[in-house]
């Protein structure tokens, strides 16, 4: 720095700057530029190709009066709430079970985490098969003698999102469990000793001491899971293709269809801007909590 400071600032540390060109390009052009482009063009009436004709909030009005979009948002909200609550609760409970100094911990973890290595396409197709009413669970329960048993989530518009939920939980809970387990292992052993000395039952220690201490872990899991849920796409494509009818449509499908097949770019861009907005609603408070408090972290 001392010798280099005689050079003009742009040439200082020039190799590092050249090496960082891909990163600079990615952040400025793709992430910032791309996002700005999408937001700006969502205010135009672009059809097949982007067209610079400003129409104000027209696309958004059309979007929010489109039944398919409203169904998509409702579906995602339903899926999102259940999937958040269940992955976090189940993930934590499994982590607690795994934290009881058990034998074969590695085996259990390997089994619970392997679905996370699989793609949503594979996940969706397997569960499509298991939930197939003609051959899958429904068929087996019926053949055991319960003739009226009905469990066909993928063919019933009312509960199709729960069919997706079963598959989503299978894929993702192991991951949340691993993160939670890492959090539990990060808790000081002395906390446990202290609570044992005071005669506090284990479940109470978990509930009132450990969980509050793990707040950052919970928040991280919350943010990651939420941003994953908003992107929900592959799983639906593979498992139900959005059906029956439009019963399991999600916003990401709406965006894709309007952008690339329905030739209504403006709608697609407006819908994707709404997706961005929903991520920001989660992300900004988190960033504020995480980085606002401690400046020099």
């Amino acid at each position: 720095m001392t010798t280099a400071s005689k050079r003009p600032w742009l040439l200082r540390n020039i190799n590092a700057k050249i090496a960082a060109m891909p990163m600079i390009f990615t952040t400025l052009v793709v992430f910032v530029g791309g996002t700005a482009w999408t937001v700006i063009y969502s205010f135009t009436n672009s059809k097949l190709l982007p067209r610079w004709q400003f129409v104000g909030l027209d696309q958004y009005e059309r979007l929010w009066s489109n039944n398919r979009w409203l169904t998509s948002v409702e579906n995602l909200a339903l899926f999102g709430v259940f999937s958040l609550v269940l992955t976090i609760t189940l993930g934590f409970l499994l982590a607690v079970l795994m934290d009881q100094k058990i034998r074969f911990e590695d085996t259990f973890r390997t089994i619970m985490l392997y679905p996370f290595a699989l793609s949503f396409i594979v996940t969706g197709l397997v569960w499509q098969w298991i939930l197939n009413p003609q051959f899958g669970i429904q068929h087996i329960v019926r053949s055991l003698g319960w003739e009226t048993f009905t469990f066909d989530p993928l063919y019933n518009p009312d509960i199709v999102m729960f069919g997706l939920l079963i598959a989503g939980l299978w894929q993702g809970t192991g991951f949340v469990m691993c993160i939670m387990l890492a959090g539990l292992r990060g808790i000081d052993e002395d906390i446990w000793k202290a609570s044992r000395v005071d005669g506090i039952p284990r479940w109470k220690t978990y509930l009132f001491v450990v969980i509050p201490m793990m707040r950052p872990v919970f928040i991280t899991v919350l943010v990651i899971t939420t941003s994953g849920i908003i992107k929900l796409y592959d799983l639906v494509i593979a498992q139900t293709s959005g059906g029956p009818g439009t019963a399991s449509q999600v916003p990401a499908m709406y965006v894709y269809d309007y952008m690339f097949t329905a030739q209504n770019l403006g709608q697609g861009l407006a819908a994707s801007t709404m997706m961005l907005l929903s991520v920001l609603i989660v992300l900004i408070p988190w960033a504020y909590l995480e980085f606002g408090g401690r400046r020099n972290g």
Partner: peptide
């Protein structure tokens, strides 16, 4: 920082510009 925050942006937002 932009890079990390960018990873949370839904891909759908950046598809068409790309």
């Amino acid at each position: 920082t932009i890079l990390i925050f960018g990873s949370f942006i839904p891909y759908q937002v950046m598809l068409y510009p790309i």
